[in-house]
Amino acid sequence: MAGKRHIAIAGASGLVGNAILRNALEDPSIEEVHVLCRQPLTVSHPKLLEHQVDFQLIPPLPEINEVYLAVGTTMHQAGSRAAFRAVDLTINLAVAQAARAAGAQRIGLVSAMAANPKSPFFYNRVKGELEAALTDLSPDGLVIARPSMLLGDREALGQPIRASETLTRYASRVVWPLIPQHYRPIQAQKVARALLHHVPTTDQTIILRSGEMQTA
């Protein structure tokens, strides 16, 4: 498989994950795109291979080079801290472990701007714990995207529109020059492009903040 990019994506139904999927399908350097999902996708493509899985028991994966982790929820949608951790940490880590077993040497992660395993805030702490757990897997390269407020068409993906994102989108048009670079809202498309650009060539752990992804 030398020289050929075979990638896996988890979370392709989400805002960033879907952008990663669509960009990957258009990327001529990527030969196969394996998507792990619970429900059938609405996308078809000659190099797309869909794997409907139970994330509690992921079967052995085909040989891959890279894995992109974009599974996530909100505290409101999860309903409890345990349920939130089971999605954002447990599922992403299980996919990463399965991908490493299938030969993946590089990992791309959609994390959160304030991720920190020692954070007093549960959401940020879980995100930080996942980053630490992925580091412990010792991949050749780990690219962690820490976006600020994400922008994109959630309605087109069948997701509820978040009032906070709508308010931020309109407010930022007025005060954009005053917002520090790393705190400005960012399009999910830019996060996806930044990950797909950095993951295949990175031989260390790097963190991409919003300001660094705005030009992707």
Results as ranks from 00 to 15, higher is better:
Ile206Gln: 01
Ala83Leu: 09
Arg38Phe: 08
Leu150Ile: 11
Ile20Val: 15
Pro147Asp: 07
Ala94Asp: 05
Ala98Pro: 13
Asn65Ser: 12
Leu21Glu: 06
Pro185Arg: 05
Gln181Cys: 11
Leu41Asn: 05
Ala94Glu: 03
Gln52Leu: 15
Thr90Ile: 07
Gln181Asp: 11
Gln77Arg: 15
Gly72Leu: 11
Ala216Tyr: 11
Ser148Trp: 09
Thr90Met: 05
Gly158Tyr: 12
Thr202Lys: 04
Asn92Ile: 11
Arg125Cys: 05
Ile107Cys: 05
Val199Cys: 05
Asp54Val: 12
Ala99Trp: 02
Leu208Arg: 00
Leu25Tyr: 06
Leu142Tyr: 13
Arg5Thr: 06
Ala83Asp: 05
Gln39Met: 08
Val191Asp: 03
Cys37Tyr: 05
Val174Pro: 04
Ala114Gly: 02
Gln159Tyr: 08
Ala132Thr: 15
Arg106Leu: 07
His197Met: 13
Thr166Asp: 01
Pro46Arg: 02
Val199Trp: 14
Glu212Val: 09
Ile186Glu: 06
Val87Tyr: 13
Val191Trp: 12
Val95Glu: 03
Pro59Phe: 10
Val110Gln: 00
Asp203Trp: 12
Ala24Val: 07
Met1Phe: 13
Lys118Ala: 15
Pro28Arg: 00
His51Cys: 07
Gln105Val: 08
Met75Asp: 01
Ile207Pro: 01
Asp203Pro: 05
Ala24Cys: 03
Gln214Cys: 05
Ala10Val: 15
Val87Ala: 13
Pro46Phe: 10
Asn116Thr: 15
Asp27Met: 03
Ile58Gly: 03
Ser119Ala: 14
Leu150Thr: 12
Glu212His: 09
Leu49His: 08
Lys127His: 14
Val67Ala: 03
Ile107Pro: 09
Asn92Ala: 01
His6Phe: 08
Tyr170Ala: 01
Glu50Asp: 03
Gln105Tyr: 02
Gly158Thr: 11
Leu150His: 07
Gly103Pro: 03
Ala12Phe: 10
Ser138Phe: 14
Val67Arg: 00
Thr166Ser: 04
Ala145Asn: 01
Arg184Phe: 11
Phe121His: 11
His45Ser: 14
Gly79Cys: 09
Gln204His: 14
Ala104Ser: 07
Glu50Leu: 04
Ile30Trp: 03
Gln159Phe: 13
Leu150Asp: 00
Glu165Ser: 08
Ala82Gly: 02
Ala102Asn: 00
Leu196Trp: 08
Leu25Trp: 05
Ser80Lys: 02
Arg162Asn: 01
Tyr170Leu: 10
Glu63Trp: 04
Leu109Asp: 00
Glu66Gln: 10
Leu25Gly: 00
Gln187Asp: 14
Ile206Lys: 00
Glu31Pro: 02
Pro139Gln: 10
Val110Lys: 00
Ala192Leu: 10
Glu63Leu: 06
Gly17Ile: 12
Asn116Phe: 15
Ile144Trp: 10
Pro185Ile: 11
Val35Cys: 03
Leu69Thr: 05
Gly152Ile: 06
Gln181Leu: 11
Ala98Leu: 06
Asp153Tyr: 10
Asp54Ala: 10
Leu89Cys: 06
